[in-house]
């Protein structure tokens, strides 16, 4: 990955780093990716395992439940009257 590409990646991730931190992390990530590249040599035609163990499909009906402790949820946010305050979109 070249430096420009890495800077673009940081922007996509919304991660802000100083110049030194960028330099350091790029080096580490290049090294880790080079290690990951070793899986290229493995021949494998298996289906992807999205779960480690095949689990039975367990579907259920959607049921509405009442959660009454609204104050406890709102306590984790900044509120204005009964609304959660968020950034501008």
């Amino acid at each position: 990955m070249d430096y420009k590409e890495f800077e673009r990646l940081l922007k996509v991730c919304r991660i802000r780093l100083s110049e030194n931190e960028t330099e350091e992390m790029k080096k580490e990530i290049d090294e880790i990716l080079a290690y990951f590249d070793k899986i290229d040599n493995i021949k494998c035609e298996e289906d992807p395992a999205y779960q480690p163990i095949d689990l039975p499909e367990q579907l259920r009906e959607d049921v509405t439940e009442q959660f009454n402790d609204i104050d406890a949820i709102l306590a984790n946010t900044k509120t204005y009257r009964f609304y959660v305050v968020g950034p501008k979109i």
Partner: peptide, 29 residues
């Protein structure tokens, strides 16, 4: 931060099959 950056890269369209999809296949094996 490092894992967010690496994970985001691994999932990006240009390399997803090479890393993520392949890793899932090898996990089954």
């Amino acid at each position: 931060k490092r894992r967010v950056v690496l994970g985001t890269y691994i999932r990006s369209a240009s390399v997803r099959d090479k890393y993520y999809y392949k890793a899932l296949q090898i996990r089954r094996l």
